[in-house]
């Protein structure tokens, strides 16, 4: 079923695939972020309750939603690594981790900045905020665990197990606002049925989410390329790649 994927277990093919995909993600990132954020911050109407303060939604919601998506992507890569034992899967897992950690941090930070003027507090230990904080710690834990082993296959295995165990936190974050009483609001767009946000505010939000996806893809692919090069530094194809690059640089210099 997945045999078409097998060639990408080879680092050289994976590196080439990164190069092919990178421009698409980069363009989505630039267009999405510029259009989405400028539209959201300057041109979308202000909210009937929260006035202009609600505009932080254009950063907070994309980073919060996608911090969970990147976690699932990271765990899926870890799962593939565990079962099929591909080192490219472990490398992808570790390429996503720091991007996800920063997204989670952005969502917590913007959430605090939004909470102070609207709720009246920076932080409260309600189920949504606490489970999102746990997600942040999970990301950090996975990166720390991976860094703790000098044998990178062993490191990948341990980090993948931790990532998989942590997946249980994702539905908890998502449903925390339904299962328990929280200060955090319920879901506005990630629910079945009509989103409870006016379409003039929803469009810039969706575009901003697309931009964030592009940014995440770009950063992850660049990180993955670096990881591949660092791991395979002694392979002939890397040496060849680096020498041709060097030659080009020298040519330009001359």
């Amino acid at each position: 079923m997945f045999t078409w994927l097998h060639p990408y277990a080879k680092t050289e093919r994976a590196y080439a695939l990164c190069n092919t995909l990178l421009p698409y993600f980069l363009v989505t990132a630039i267009v999405g972020l510029v259009v989405g954020i400028i539209w959201g911050l300057l041109f979308a109407p202000s909210d009937y309750q929260q006035g202009d303060s609600f505009r932080i939604i254009y950063i907070h919601v994309p980073s919060a939603i996608l911090s969970m998506s990147t976690y699932v992507a990271m765990a899926a890569a870890g799962f593939v690594g565990l079962v099929w034992q591909w080192k490219t899967a472990y490398m992808s897992m570790m390429a996503i981790a720091p991007v996800g950690a920063i997204l989670t941090f952005i969502s917590l930070f913007t959430g605090a900045a939004w909470g102070k003027p609207m709720w009246g507090t920076w932080w409260i230990w309600d189920a949504r905020l606490t489970s999102q904080l746990i997600l942040f710690f999970l990301y950090l834990g996975i990166m720390a665990l991976y860094a703790a082993f000098s044998d990178k296959t062993q490191a990948g295995k341990s980090a993948a197990i931790m990532a998989l165990v942590g997946v249980i936190n994702i539905p908890i974050i998502h449903f925390s606002v339904e299962w328990w009483n929280t200060l955090h609001q319920g879901a506005t767009i990630t629910k079945f049925g009509q989103p409870s946000i006016a379409s003039s505010m929803l469009w810039p939000l969706l575009i901003s989410i697309a931009g964030f996806i592009g940014l995440i893809g770009t950063l992850t692919l660049m990180n993955l390329k670096n990881q591949i090069l660092r791991r395979e530094i002694n392979r002939p194809w890397v040496t060849e790649l680096l020498t041709t690059k060097e030659m080009n640089v020298n040519k330009e210099a001359n």
Binding site: P45, D47, Y48, Q185, I197, S200, M201
Partner: peptide, 8 residues
């Protein structure tokens, strides 16, 4: 606040 956002 609730999950509804709309212009005034």
């Amino acid at each position: 606040h609730d999950e509804e956002y709309m212009p005034p």
